[in-house]
Design a protein around this nucleic acid. Structure first.
Lengths: 392, 392
DNA sequence: GACGTTTCCGGAAACGTTGCCGATAGTTTT
DNA sequence: AAAACTATCGGCAACGTTTCCGGAAACGTC
């Protein structure tokens, strides 16, 4: 017979239904409900790690005192403090950052969203972010959108739900709607856009000077003696295509060279497209003497294709690319290109975030432009021009 | 005169010292201490975001009911559930993962420590980790040790303090002491070592099959007709040097080729060292006809140096490298190399972690070896041998 | 109508930390 | 010696969530 857990009498105990598979009882005399014993609950209690309470117990003080000692507050005597520090070391106490963050309403973590970690540009940018963030005591959480809008949105949501203190983001190619970046969606945390930028006022941004880079490359080709300079651009809808093409046109204009429509091509960045484009140019009655590829991989494609077609680089055709310092230095001939300084871009983005945290509501969103740098190598050196007297 | 906050009488109120800069008082009649008003405390209350309590208030139910509704538990009527879901949407409620993690004792986050994100091998491995982790509902937190032991240790500590559910690590070159990976230091969370491996029993590891890769490369060179195959290895102390050299020796032995000490070199991976080594070999009375570089960058160095010295690759000297698929395919001539499949390594490491989480204490630590793959390109194709009938 | 059942919800205690504030004992001033 | 002060420390309420478990209404059944 079942006994009441309160009065220990079995007389007035009635069955009172089932809850979650267990029989419940009701004691009429004490008017008390209770449930049958749990069927040998497996404890499987995860190993308990020392908490502030454990340290407090060991020393014989209150948890709040331990907290004060550990955080170097005042209101504590040197002896107690030392005793607490000793006990903490002995118990191998490690503060639970989760609880700290929950209490302090700050995680000391910043979220980073990039299209693809495997692309050297982004890996380097993230590295720059991490260096600055780490020095400032922030951890970094990285997500890849893989150029998918849906993934980007879910990345941002996950980071915000994780209560990151800030968001550094380079949008995917697909991204055209920015509702997921709204202040309400992002809980008013500081946001910095970099590289591919959210084109709207009142946001912090770190950008590449596409125009100047393209201008410098083109001017360099002109000064090397090239007179028919082709440009291999990406889809016309892309901002980078437009701006780099504008820089190209600017240089042509400055040096009084005509703009020939047949030398301006927009492709989808695929190698086959680049090669097809090259062949079309080579078949012209008056082919170009230089090609500026706004994408570095296409520049490699061009060099390889030219070689297999028996053309020499740079003698028969000068080639210049854009971005990716490392690869450009390895290939033969070395590729003239523009170093976009992705590491600095990352650093700058992190600095903008830190500044915003520091200044709070006094912070004014602003746009930073990271200077790019023309790196001249073999692929463009025709040596027929006036040399290198050019300013970027 | 100051009035007591309890009895509202000013008569028996005495000053009672200062606490943290504020005057304190003591009311004799009620025997009550109190402190002067806080000097216009700046609220600066951060924007409050909807919590479970807010949703509960709006619907008129208890927080626990909201939690049940949101987590799809039973014990809730369809109408209440719908009302709660509607209210949650209306208030733009987002669960606070911090609080959830604290309560659930699980963060759904895994920590990754790698030497350098900018190295394509690691970037790709991380990408593989992230793909598997994301699909399993885990977030990823990445740290770089930059090949520094001290940084690695602090990375591990930071991740553990952040309560990550697991740790995937590739050790720095400096790391020889593994105390920071002990079960106590890491709070018994699952750990998987990958690539550079913790050489001890009873840990989970994902490794490259250095031996087989090196064997395959060397055998390929033999079958291409090379008879004096040199190996450009790294520091003899490095495990990868030893194992790749062992694979090289194994292939020579299998095909009855003599091992010539003068064709085995250990360098420090710097380009100048590689070139110096090449020149020494070229100056031999009987120079090698092939070089296997266990490091892909050195392979590039060799190709460039050979070209500048008027030697043809592969006609005068066959070259083969190890690792980094992408670069090897871009260069001219294409570099024969071993694809280490870093993406798979990352995936495998993440899978090992997931398995350990799933099986709990029934999990047996084990070592996985990810098959590498010989990729044959122009740089080794002498065509004087028996062709490609080789098995890796 | 007494007993049993199902359904649904609220209260409360955690998780680990921090910070406010009250409360002492001991010391100095008046 | 009362009054004022200093130096320490404990208690308690948060932070936002989850999970027990008790309570009660509504319904069924002998």
């Amino acid at each position: 017979m079942v006994k009441c857990v309160k009065c220990s009498l079995a007389d007035d105990v009635l069955k009172a239904g089932f809850v979650r598979g267990r029989q419940r009882f009701f004691c009429k005399s004490c008017e008390y409900h209770f449930t049958a014993e749990r069927p040998a609950g497996v404890p499987s209690r995860k190993r308990h790690h020392a908490t502030i309470a454990d340290v407090a117990r060991q020393v014989g003080v209150a948890p709040s005192t331990v907290s004060r000692a550990l955080n170097g507050h005042s209101d504590i005597s040197p002896v107690t403090r030392q005793a607490i520090l000793d006990a903490a070391r002995q118990l191998d106490y490690q503060p639970n950052l989760l609880a700290q963050s929950l209490k302090n309403r700050a995680t000391n973590t910043i979220g980073v969203v990039i299209p693809d970690l495997e692309r050297p540009f982004f890996a380097t940018a993230v590295s720059g972010i991490q260096q600055v963030a780490t020095e400032a005591g922030y951890r970094v959480m990285i997500c890849q959108s893989k150029e998918s809008y849906a993934t980007e949105v879910s990345n941002v949501q996950a980071l915000v739900a994780s209560q990151v203190d800030g968001l550094l983001i380079c949008h995917s190619r697909e991204t055209e709607n920015f509702d997921h970046m709204s202040s309400t969606a992002c809980r008013d945390i500081p946001i910095v856009h970099f590289d591919r930028v959210y084109n709207q006022e009142n946001v912090s941004r770190v950008m590449i000077d596409d125009w100047s880079g393209a201008f410098a490359v083109t001017e360099h080709l002109v000064l090397e003696g090239c007179r028919r300079i082709a440009i291999l651009a990406g889809p016309a809808s892309l901002l980078i295509s437009q701006q780099r093409q504008a820089g190209y046109l600017g240089a042509l204009r400055k040096h009084g060279l005509p703009v020939e429509e047949e030398l301006i091509a927009h492709i989808d960045f695929r190698a086959e497209s680049a090669v097809a484009c090259l062949d079309a140019w080579l078949a012209l009655p008056n082919p170009p003497d230089a090609i500026f590829s706004i994408n570095y991989t296409n520049a490699f494609d061009l060099i390889l294709a030219l070689r297999s077609r028996g053309r020499r680089v740079p003698e028969d055709m000068a080639i210049a690319g854009f971005g990716d310092e490392f690869l450009a230095s390895l290939i033969e001939p070395g590729l003239t290109t523009v170093d976009l300084h992705p590491y600095r871009i990352g650093q700058q983005a992190a600095h903008l975030f830190l500044e915003q945290v520091k200044l709070q509501e006094r912070f004014e969103p602003r746009t930073c432009v990271v200077k790019s740098e023309l790196i001249i190598r073999q692929s463009s050196l025709r040596g027929q021009g006036q040399g290198f007297q050019l300013a970027i």
